[in-house]
Write a protein that binds this DNA or RNA. Structure first.
Length: 228
DNA sequence: CTTTGATCATGG
DNA sequence: CCATGATCAAAG
């Protein structure tokens, strides 16, 4: 068994690749791919996601688009506890804080990324060393009309505040499913934003994240569909 | 214990 | 700096 050398040609091929990883530990997959295994994620926070990209054949890089653009699929790993509850929020995308000419959800980057997501649960309990963390059953998700409406409302409320120069009053508590949080290498990173009276100010870069209750609902829906 | 705000690594 | 992959850790 070895990582694929090319992107999946079809959705079924992608799903087959993902399902084949279920049950393996991160350590096993890293070893098969000849990749060094970190003893902690403290300095390797994105390691799991990048390992999955390798094994699923995603294009490397950091382009503001889906991981599998030809298939219309975004890849997300999600750390879960032994009951399947998410242990962390899920980063979705970077946020532009200026040049917001229109609040157009349908053509937004976040709408595109969340239109179809391949979720890959991974044991995330901090007591389990990275090498021993097991991969779960991946599943494909498309937001329901209800979920889409919540996401859209959260996004529009947040973007409106940004456009009105109220970025500094937005906290992670705002939003039912989405939240806006700092997203940068460190505290010294600054970017342009709209301030009061429409003046350009400098602020910490932000990104959109999915709250845990929302991703938990997605996971429940996938494994207990009869309850929905 | 949980969550918000901060941070780490990498490639453009 | 932007944007990706995320988790850390101080604060509540």
């Amino acid at each position: 068994m070895h990582p694929p050398s090319s992107p999946p040609a079809s959705l079924n091929e992608l799903l087959d690749r993902a399902q084949a990883l279920a049950g393996f530990t991160l350590g096993e997959l890293a070893e098969l791919a000849n990749i060094a295994i970190p003893s902690s994620f403290q300095r390797h926070k994105g390691w799991s996601g990048q390992l999955l990209e390798l094994w699923l054949g995603a294009e490397a890089g950091s382009k503001p688009q889906q991981d599998f653009p030809d298939l219309g699929v975004e890849l997300k790993s999600i750390p879960v506890d032994n009951t399947g509850f998410p242990l962390e929020t899920t980063y979705v995308c970077y946020t532009h804080l200026t040049g917001i000419s229109q609040l157009d959800w349908e053509s937004s980057n976040i709408r595109n990324k969340l239109s179809q997501v391949l979720w890959v649960p991974i044991q995330g309990d901090r007591a389990i060393p990275p090498a021993a963390r097991q991969i779960g059953s991946a599943f494909l998700w498309q937001p329901s009309s209800e979920q889409l409406a919540i996401l859209r409302q959260d996004w529009e409320e947040i973007m409106e505040k940004i456009a009105l120069g109220q970025i500094e009053s937005i906290t992670a508590r705002q939003g039912e499913a989405l939240q806006l949080r700092p997203k940068a290498a460190n505290g010294s990173a600054l970017t342009d934003a709209i301030g009061q009276q429409g003046k350009i100010i400098k602020t910490r870069p932000r990104g959109f994240y999915l709250k845990k209750n929302f991703t938990h609902q997605i996971i429940q829906q996938a494994f207990n569909p009869e309850h929905f």
